[in-house]
């Protein structure tokens, strides 16, 4: 068995025992996984394909709403439920809860893929910063739209049923839902980047005009990549909805200035366009965020801004990119300078 096998075994073992070894940090660990999921999916279009989206939060929010609506609709009338204002009593059996959790999560992923294709069809005509601003606009518009839609509770948001069972067991379940999704996403991304699909989206990043000139179906690949990313963000949103129990549109679901930006920072911090970069970045970012939010309260946004500035100015390749640059032979990249210099004399 190779060294890699042992490394991955240790990692998997750690993931499994973590919530039991650190019982006070179950929700924190779950949030780390959420950050890993949104960072990895952001990197699919941002780092690997060169399309920096600021609108991926749309899928997070939409995932929450789709999961909630599906869960409620299985038992009650959605409009009535969301506008009861505490007037009615709506109980869910544990069977209804878990059915809603499963169906709602799957529906959220699929629906988000669908809207990614629709939004992508329009916004992928934009390049560079225009794409970023365009998708940001979509996210803000989606949040405003939903917050004015009474059927889904308007600005009040939606309250979902509570986990039927022990509170601590619920926490463990949500940890494993996020961790499972994260692991599946990581393995999927690792495989995807090794296929021709991965090569094609990298080609689009490096030179889209060249890719077009070589006959690559660029739009098809862009839509597929975003739809895949949206699926996982939607699933993460759905799980979050059940974990948070109550969410409202602008601050929780379509939280453009929080999670919507954090996912970008995670990737930049860890290293865009690498498989491990977003994972490393998400972990570092979350630790940094929790430390500053606890010990530098009042200055936490300043600290975050400073972190972004330092990353962008000094570590443009992120942590992983910086290590790759220093020790290319660890990654099987040979970049012998003399080789390049003697080029045309041979």
């Amino acid at each position: 068995m190779s060294k890699k096998f042992y490394l991955y075994s240790v990692l998997i073992a750690f993931i499994v025992v973590a919530p039991f070894v650190f019982p006070d940090f179950k929700t924190q660990l779950a949030t780390v996984w959420l950050m890993i999921i949104v960072a990895l999916t952001w990197d699919m279009t941002g780092g690997q394909m060169g399309y920096n989206s600021l609108g991926n939060i749309t899928f997070y929010g939409t995932g929450m709403y789709v999961a909630a609506v599906v869960t409620i609709a299985l038992v009650y009338d959605v409009g009535e439920y969301n506008n009861a204002f505490g007037g009615g009593i709506y109980a869910f059996t544990s069977q209804q809860y878990f059915l809603g959790l499963i169906l709602g999560t799957v529906a959220a992923g699929l629906f988000c893929s669908l809207i990614a294709v629709i939004i992508g069809f329009i916004t992928f005509g934009l390049r560079g910063p225009y794409f970023a601003i365009g998708t940001l606009g979509v996210a803000i518009a989606a949040g405003e739209l939903v917050s004015n839609w009474d059927w889904v509770g308007g600005g009040q948001g939606i309250a979902l049923p509570v986990f039927p069972g022990d509170y601590d067991v619920g926490k463990v379940m949500f940890y494993f839902l996020f961790a499972g999704t994260g692991v599946i996403l990581f393995v999927f991304a690792k495989w995807l980047y090794s296929t021709r699909f991965g090569a094609a989206i990298n080609a689009i990043r490096d030179d889209e005009e060249k890719a077009e000139a070589m006959g690559i179906h660029t739009l098809q690949y862009k839509l597929a990549a975003w739809a895949i990313a949206a699926f996982f963000v939607g699933v993460a949103g759905a799980i979050s909805a059940f974990q948070l129990i109550h969410f409202e549109p602008l601050e929780t679901a379509y939280q453009t200035i929080n999670l919507g930006i954090f996912m970008v920072v995670c990737v930049l911090l860890g290293g865009a366009g690498t498989l491990w970069g977003p994972v490393v970045g998400a972990i570092l970012f979350h630790v940094f965020k929790e430390v500053t939010w606890n010990y530098l309260l009042g200055w936490q946004w300043v600290a975050l801004g400073a972190l972004i500035v330092v990353t962008v100015v000094y570590f443009q390749g992120g942590v992983v990119g910086w290590v790759m640059d220093k020790y290319p032979h660890w990654f099987g990249l040979s970049r012998v300078a003399e080789d390049v210099a003697e080029d045309e004399q041979s």
């Binding site: 021709r196 090569a199 030179d207 000139a213």
Partner: peptide
């Protein structure tokens, strides 16, 4: 115009018809 961040082999493989 080539794909600058990929190596020579990958540049060739992505050019498959």
């Amino acid at each position: 115009r080539i794909y600058g961040q990929m190596n020579g082999i990958d540049n060739m493989l992505i050019s498959l018809p």
